[in-house]
Nucleic acid binder design. Structure first.
Length: 390
DNA sequence: CACGCGTGGAC
DNA sequence: TGTCCAAGCGT
């Protein structure tokens, strides 16, 4: 439970006015600008924060889990995952002792699966080195897998009350506008300025709530498009608002065009099961299960797809028919899965191309960690009736 | 430092 | 339908 507000809401000076008299002697205009932001934002947060499930707990593990899931992922997507995952792995110790396959299955559909692998490894380290409880400082947290500067600051401040700064996409946008920070995302000078601002501002009462106030403000009011400046608690301090530059700060990041990736996917039924393979740990969908897949040229004929799958499986498979194509847009990949029903002279148990092969009935496949793209491919294959009674 | 890494929501 | 993008991290 978040601590109730005890802070008297600070009065913000009106836009363009010098700092008030009691501060003027020892406080620079820059410091006064900072002070005019902290109090109003914290006060606004107390009145307007959303009732999110991880704001109802003080369990550092639960808060940690929320921060990892929220990386590059929207709140509404995370909520059901967080609740299910926490019910299944209620403590760091429970998570640490679970098989990685179970952890990846719990992450199924959430994306960026290395987060789950790092979370699992970090839980094991926490058990081995810290008796199952997270260390309480950002500096220590930063040593654990999956903790970068942001997540270390978030967990240290929110779960442990450390005056640890954080900068995420929201905070970068909020600061860029209020303090007119120039530069493209990734620019070294820009990042340094943002972190310096975060470091200065977090000092004071309730650092965790203040950090959340910054992010909440960015997510709901100081939005990328159509920001709600008329409802903004720090409008009077916002340089971009005063100068009419809200829409141009921060500059949008330049995105690379997604590369095309086409995979031939083997749908190989046998005795009520299909053949599954586990992908390599690194790279796209690392460590997840799939219907065995091999990269092909986008315009490759089925004969070439058959050859690629035969090589990957170490068995000369026969093409029994095409079942369609699954197309998915990833951030940096334009993914096509060409589903090919195959059969073979024998059933492979292991191959060089895959870490592990397994024949699974549909019910067992439910429990495997799998990407959404592959889940869709599986649904299509089953819908096409490749298994009797399926 | 640039790139690889997923997904679903918003418009 | 297309496009952008959201509470980043690892290499």
């Amino acid at each position: 439970m978040s601590s109730p507000s005890k802070a008297a809401p600070a009065r913000k000076p009106r836009a363009g006015r010098p700092p008030s008299a009691p501060l003027a002697a020892t406080v620079t205009p820059a410091q006064a600008h900072l002070a005019s932001v902290r109090g109003p934002l914290l006060d606004w947060y107390d009145r307007n924060k959303r009732d999110l499930p991880w704001r109802r707990t003080r369990d550092s593990y639960a808060i940690w889990l929320s921060e990892v899931m929220l990386q590059q992922t929207q709140v509404s997507t995370v909520i059901p995952y967080w609740e299910r995952f926490l019910a299944r792995f209620p403590t760091a110790r429970a998570l640490a002792s679970a098989p990685l396959d179970d952890v990846l299955a719990g992450w199924k559909g959430l994306g960026y699966y290395s987060r789950a692998r790092n979370l699992h490894r970090a839980a094991q380290e926490v058990v081995a080195r810290f008796g199952g409880t997270l260390p309480s400082t950002a500096a220590e947290l930063l040593e654990l897998p999956g903790f970068g500067r942001y997540t270390a600051g978030a967990v240290a401040s929110i779960a442990f009350g450390e005056e640890a700064p954080l900068v995420d996409g929201n905070v970068a946008r909020v600061f860029s506008r209020i303090f007119e920070v120039e530069g493209l995302p990734g620019d070294r000078q820009r990042e340094a300025t943002l972190w310096a601002l975060a470091t200065a501002l977090v000092k004071g009462e309730r650092p965790g709530d203040f950090n959340q106030a910054l992010m909440e403000h960015g997510a709901t009011t100081c939005r990328p498009e159509n920001p709600l400046c008329l409802l903004c608690p720090v409008r009077g301090a916002c340089v971009a608002f005063r100068k009419g530059r809200v829409d141009e700060l921060p500059p949008a990041k330049v995105r690379a065009t997604p590369k095309k990736l086409t995979l031939a996917v083997a749908v190989w039924p046998h005795a009520g099961t299909l053949l599954f393979a586990r992908r390599a740990d690194a790279g796209l969908f690392g460590g997840l299960w799939e219907l065995p897949a091999a990269e092909i040229a986008d315009d490759a004929p089925d004969s070439e797809a058959r050859a690629r799958l035969s090589a990957a499986l170490g068995v000369d498979v026969t093409l029994e028919g095409a079942l369609g194509t699954v197309k998915r847009q990833l951030t940096h990949r334009d993914l096509s899965l060409r589903l090919l029903r195959v059969s073979g002279p024998r059933r492979p148990a292991s191959t060089p191309a895959f870490q592990e092969l397994r024949w699974c009935a549909p019910d067992d496949a439910e429990k495997l960690g799998m990407s959404t793209a592959m889940q869709r491919a599986l649904d299509i294959a089953l819908g096409a009736g490749v298994l009797p009674g399926g």
